[in-house]
Design a protein around this nucleic acid. Sequence first.
DNA 1: TTGAAAGCGTTACCAC
DNA 2: GTGGTAACGCTTTCAA
Lengths: 342, 342
Amino acid sequence: MAVTIKDVAKHAGLSLSTVSRALNQSGYVSEDAQRRIDTAVAELGYQPNYLARGLRGQPSRLVGLIVPEVTSLYDNLIIQSVAAMLHKNNYGMMLCINNEDAEADLGYLKILKEKQVDGIIYVHPLEGNNSPFVRTLAKEGMPIIELNRRREEDLLDGVLADNVQGAYQLTNYVIGLGHRRIGLIMGQTDLTTGQNRLTGYRHALNDADIPIDPALIRIGSFTQEHGETGTQELLQLAERPSAILAGSNRILMGCLKVLNEQAIRIPDDLSVATFNDTEWLRFWNPPITTVDIATEEMVNLSVELLLRRMASPSKEYKPRTYLLSTSLLERGSCAKVKQSGG
Amino acid sequence: MAVTIKDVAKHAGLSLSTVSRALNQSGYVSEDAQRRIDTAVAELGYQPNYLARGLRGQPSRLVGLIVPEVTSLYDNLIIQSVAAMLHKNNYGMMLCINNEDAEADLGYLKILKEKQVDGIIYVHPLEGNNSPFVRTLAKEGMPIIELNRRREEDLLDGVLADNVQGAYQLTNYVIGLGHRRIGLIMGQTDLTTGQNRLTGYRHALNDADIPIDPALIRIGSFTQEHGETGTQELLQLAERPSAILAGSNRILMGCLKVLNEQAIRIPDDLSVATFNDTEWLRFWNPPITTVDIATEEMVNLSVELLLRRMASPSKEYKPRTYLLSTSLLERGSCAKVKQSGG
DNA sequence: TTGAAAGCGTTACCAC
DNA sequence: GTGGTAACGCTTTCAA
């Protein structure tokens, strides 16, 4: 059915080996042979079979990307950038969406195994833990880069946003506006992301000598639902916060929904800020202040690290963590606190 | 390095063939052998090599999805749904992002060729045309489904949103609110999507005996930039529209940005509506009225069609087009027109 | 400079 | 029930 190297050889009146050599620019091939092969390839529309090539230990030029989901704008940018970067380097990408589920995740890891792919960029799922499998895979020589969530720092390279710094920056900024009661609605803290953002928040308050009120910290999940309930709970507090920090865009959505429903004006009645920059934050009325995470740079770095490891897979190397700094995007959703009690 | 079926056979004290049969549940295998093989597989951590399997003409259980981009929320939902649906059916997905570019697109099609994948779900790029290659591929037996954009209706199955109906519905709704001067900011019309939405708009106006004013129709691209300029142009008209329909979410963003800057209130000063439902539309202040496109259903249908074709690839079949109806999501961004002149 | 042949991991067809 | 063996398409020695 499909055109094979055999057909090309027959068409060009040469042997398999010669054609193969010509196609791979390895070994000697006469100009004449080269020309005949080129025309044969063109005429027959020959396409190398990556499967067969891979069987011979050749790289598949396919990289696996495992992400938890794709509806989040954050993961999206990751996918987009990884795909672009890989394509530029002549790699295909196999996208795996584990839905934050360890079982699905393991299934994908298994599929990606066995030289099916040359390397993996891995964002861990929230739930569960496929550490043993991942570690075995890595030790068998599969290049793996941890992105965004860190788990195997003793074994794998990892690229992360400096969320401690980001949260510190943001909290500190709000403090600078005179706020003292600052609510924080955060997702899972058994993850580096949530944990670090919480840490940054605490540090900033400590450094400003503001006592930490546990009632102001609503830990839950990175979902819109938690954003809604968190906001409601904060608003019901006897001593309401004058500012709310949403732990993610999802959380922010829930937060904005509730504020909208209760006709609470931003920033007149309440200051609001969030993490991660997203298209619509800029056009919101008012535009939402946020901590910008250098997603694209993070992705570029991960792919680069992966390419490097794939180029020399067996080489000994010391796993490194790359922390990328964040930056504050000051917009219109935070205002100076009103001098109510002073 | 990696564990092969050979190792399993040795470990279990059986032959390759027996192990292969056991692994594929084809042919007869004694319970005892099965058990021994199972333990061997478990102990050795054996993982079948999909490459070798594919070489033997076995399906790769990999499906290619080609989409123009991934930053658009629409394409996102597509990716998410396709991945989920394929995973449920035990298929992996190779994601290809052509960036609306024909050359990249062709590269991806070539990679996907050659049984590398068992089938393709294809959203054409805006620019250029890889018809010849796609058609050859299809004729060689590769199952391909056109999604969202139609080009090879004589050869391939296609699944589309009924954009004529959607635009008609939306325009008609706005007319019902008393609007007579209705601006339309639309992207490329050499594509079915843009063309059909324009058509629906025209039909609705015609049916309501409202003359079509070309000045109210701003054709450009599906980008935020065009949304901005389109809105600006419409606002500069001597006879301003009382409502604006944005041709896509991207266009809407540009539109909202300009309205925000000019402090034009929605819907008091101007009614606004758009196409495609997106998370943030609901939380906007006011929530934006839109035509909901049944993306998920579209994707489910495409995958189902693809699975069916992959199951019996050679079977003769008549290509069909599936048009999915849209529905109006009436929210707060459109108001009854003020009785200014009557 | 070229070609024959072995082998990659798997499955399928035959014998036994 | 089971075990050889050829074959899938390709690359890579090794001779010629």
